[in-house]
Amino acid sequence: MNFIPRIPIGEWAESGIDWLTDNVAGLFDVISAIFNFLVGNLTYGLTALEPLVMIVILALIAWVVRSWQLAIGTAITFLIVLSMEQWVHMMETMALVLVATVVAVVIAVPVGILAASNRAVSSVVRPIMDFMQTMPAFVYLIPAVTFFSIGVVPGMVATIIFALPPGVRMTELGIRQVDGETVEAGEAFGASSWQILRGIQLPLAVPTIMAGVNQVIMLALSMGVIAGMIGAPGLGKEVVAAISSLDLALGVEAGLGVVILAVYLDRITAALGDSATYTKSALALVQKARARRATGAL
């Protein structure tokens, strides 16, 4: 096998990363400061209130967007987390996941829109997304640590990269799926591309985009736990601690916290994307009452 030369791809990547560390350090510092600021403040906000008050608020959110059943389930399961003394860790993880999701969506949606409207962009973006999604998640942790040292920021960055692809894919899919005749109607009435995007394509793609956001959150949550290995605070750190000390009790409790948080975030975002299905949500009830008043007034 000597005739195949050894191609040092790994070394090239390493020297590339080294070059970045040496030359773009300023940018990394800025990113670091911003993420620290966002996650720090959100964590502070989530933990500043008395946990019981916070549970009531989160349960109310569940009722507003989905149903009173979810609200009750939320209250019960979050009380369990509180009694397991994992509440603060769960809020830390939640802050990490939420910030990572927001950043990922802010990047993913415009990229998805571009990919949907331009075939060339789409064919470039697709393999990059494949790469980002299939590369083992742990690998991202290494450059993240070189760039940002340990803590919440490298965890965030690795989480964003890992969670980004479904957001891009589903946005592209959602916009491409919009009925061609509807877009044509916009053109036929003289709408500009921007008016068609804002008034027709995006609103009609919302359910698909929200399904993508839901995926982003789920991936961010799983990655957020892995990020515990490089010192990101939260349930992940507890899980890593449990592994290193073979503490089954702690592992189960931290793991349960992850499950409960995952279910909550999943149900909420699923309902946001498909509000028509949840006719018993407080939001739907309010809208129905308003519509009735509007037609009654005519």
Binding site: D179, E181, T182, E184, A185, E187, A188, F189, G190, A191, S192, G199, I200, P203, L204
Partner: peptide
Amino acid sequence: VREVRRKRISMVFQHFALLPH
């Protein structure tokens, strides 16, 4: 062309092409 579409020509579609939202 957009101006002409706004001011002079409108269109009705086979499958209505209404905006469901």
